[in-house]
Structure formats: C-alpha cells, structure tokens
Design a protein around this nucleic acid. Structure first.
Lengths: 205, 205
DNA sequence: AAAGAATGTTGTCATTGACACCATTGTTTC
DNA sequence: GAAACAATGGTGTCAATGACAACATTCTTT
C-alpha cells in the first residue's frame, strides 16, 4: 500500500534543486514573480524548507546571480582565451559571447545586475562580478601592448566595450531584430568602437 | 467637533494625485514595491478607490509609463528642435537629453521599457513610445540630407544612437562615474559613433 | 426631479514572505 | 556505542498585498 519510494524526511539535495528550479522559474516567470512557495510545491517540500538554505528570497536570488556571474565568466574567458588572435577578432568574440549570454538568459542577466546594485549586496557577489569581467581588461591590455588600443585604464576601456554591447542587448529586447541581424550588428558596432579606440598619431585610417 | 474641512465623499482629483504620488513612490521604492494600498493610505482614500481609475496595478504602471514617454518625448524634441545646427551638435544635444532623463528618472525609465515590452501592453503605450522617438529619426534624415550620415533606414540609425546612449546609461547605473565624468563620455561615445556613421567615399577623416 | 453614471467604501479571499516553535535525521565526541 | 548537538524539514501563524463583489454616495443628464 505504501509507495515503495516514499520521500525520506530529508530531501537530500534541496539546495541544489532549489537553484535549478529557481533558474527555470526565473527565465519563465521573471524574477519579480518567482515564488518561494511555488518552488517548494514543485519540489514537494513544505513552504518553509527553503529557509534552511536561503534566509529570505533575496538570498536565493543572490545565489542565482552568483551562479550567473560564474556562467558569464566562463563564457567571457572562453571567448578571450586565445591570446594569439588579433585584438579586433578577440573583441568580436567577446561581443558574441556577451550578447549570446544576454539573449539566452535575459531575465537572469537583468536580475544579476539588479542584485549587484542592491543596497546590501553580499561582497561575494561583487567579487564574482569582478572576476567574471576581469579577462576583458586583460585583453584590452594585450591590445594596448600590441598598439591597437589607446592608452588608458584597461578596466574603463573594457567597460566601454560592454557599454556598446549592453546597448545592443537592450535594443534586442526591443524586438528590433527579425533574425540573425543582431549578429551582423555586433561586428558593426565593435568596428565603430575599434575605430575610436585606435591610437591616432596620424588621422585614423 | 467636526473638522472644518472634512474630506468630501468624492476625492475630486484622485486619478491625478494617484499618478503624482505613484511617480514619487516609483522613484523612491522602485516599481516592484509600489503598493496600491500604500498609495491609497497616503492620499487618504480606501484601499479600493484606485480601482475606479486603474483596474489593476499594471494599469497604473502603464499610465505612469505613458506619462514618462510624454516627458521623454518633450525632452527629445526640445533637444533637436533647432534644425539649423550641424548634425554632430544636434546628436550631442540628443545624447545629453536622453542621458539626463535617464539619470533623473532611473526607475521610471526602466519601468517604461518593461511596460512597453510587457506581453499585452496597450497599443496606446507603443504609440507613445513611437512618438517620443520620432524626432530623432527626422534628425538623422536631416543628417543624411546634409551628407553627414550614411544612407540607411533613419529609424535604424536612430536606434543605433540610442543603443550607445543606453549602454552609457547602464554603465552609469554601475556607479562608474564619480561626478560629471559622464557628460564628457557622452561627447566621446557619440564622436565614435559619428565617425562610424560618416559616409566613406574616401577613408574617414 | 428622476434615472443612471461616476466614484468611494466595507468586507472578504487567496497568495506571499517571514517568523517562532517543533520534529526528524546525521554527525561528532566522549 | 550512546549522548549531545547540528543540520534540515515541518506546522502554524501573521501582516501585507492585489483582486473582487456588494453596497453607498454624489454628480450629470435628461
């Protein structure tokens, strides 16, 4: 009569599954309507079980954001890992990686930034963001060493590039791109950016 | 005993004051935590009074967004109204106007876009957004007529400019700018953009 | 003046996040 | 190996919220 596999008192892997299901719910219903109780129901635990792993809702969101920055960091590092490529090629790879991530995880990305800018964001989260973007600064330093990039703080220059990409992303949310058009724009925008970043001892080519 | 000015049964100006107080609450507590009941309390009406003017919370947000697009439209039109100026000057004015708006009303702006991209956004809202950005397309057409801008759909080019500006705005949210630094960047970024937009019958200057 | 439209109110419901307190299981230490 | 304790899960409850129905008051229109 009793089910052969009645769930034991302890779930065993609740934290992990909360993150997994949370990620799914984030992308479907948005960060705003992510409900802890709904998650609990899905995983078949009581409505307060998540509290043992995440003191409040923001803590779960922070954990998801942390995971997001880790994912993004891997994507960025992978795009930039080949230091033998020329600067422009690397920059375009970086752009594709970032825009690709943004298109794949729109709700996650915006939640990541929201969490990071939250008043009392955990230091861990800020550090994760820092870490994720670090390879980009290094690439810009490589570009400066090769004479392809104007002098200046490499972190600032890197942020400039992400500015352009972020604008592109926000445009894509506006549903402007029918299909693959966005991929072409990445190259175009970065081309403009590179023109602007080139040292100008003589008038830019 | 009775107060000399007991509020009459009908508030008289509830819709207006809801919008006004809602705008304030939006900028202070954010769109997410804007509470209809809290607004009702502030204005001294019952918790369901807003329902006569806005069927649900989203309707109030939509109305606020509509107002926001009207404000933004005025700012954009004002920045571009002098058609005798050269293209670059007008573009910089546009940039300052947009970034200025974004810095002044951060929560409103992000809510405006969220509302606009909401699944069942009212057509009125989409039209308002369209209207607000229209002067920019016209300015780009002026630029094309003067030979300062490459051919192409003026709406797309206009969006490209807003892309750059939007990226700048998202950067500013990252707290990168100590003080007036952002104002300098506006010129810088648009300079790059203009370089890219210049027709290139011969190598760009 | 009467009818009906606008506009506000009271009361209620389900959902949610948070909390205090209790129950069960795993782990550590003597 | 058993007792103490930590870790993890559950029950019950609370206040806040958005939404709704049913009813009250005032304004407008005919």
């Amino acid at each position: 009569m009793s089910k052969p596999e009645q769930r034991p008192y302890h779930h065993g892997n609740l934290r992990e599954e909360l993150l997994e299901a949370g990620m799914k719910m984030l992308e479907t219903t948005g960060a705003r309507d992510l409900s802890l109780r709904e998650l609990s129901r899905e995983l078949g635990v009581s409505h307060t079980a998540p509290r043992r792993h995440f003191p409040d809702k923001q803590a779960l969101l922070d954990a998801l954001a942390l995971h997001g920055f880790a994912l993004l960091g891997v994507a960025i590092a992978k795009a930039l890992k080949d230091r033998s490529l020329d600067f422009k090629t690397r920059l375009v790879k970086l752009g594709r990686a970032y825009v690709g991530f943004a298109v794949k995880h729109p709700a996650l990305l915006s939640m990541m930034f929201a969490a990071k800018h939250h008043d009392d964001a955990p230091a861990e989260l800020l550090a994760a963001a820092e870490r994720a973007f670090a390879p980009s600064s290094l690439a810009f330093e490589d570009g400066q060493a090769a004479g392809d990039v104007i002098p200046g703080d490499s972190k600032d220059l890197s942020l400039l590039a992400f500015t352009a990409m972020q604008g592109l992303v926000s445009l894509s949310h506006n549903g402007i791109f029918r299909g693959e058009k966005i991929d072409l724009l990445i190259g175009g925008i970065l081309e403009h950016l590179i023109l602007g970043l080139k040292p100008r001892k003589e008038p830019a080519r």
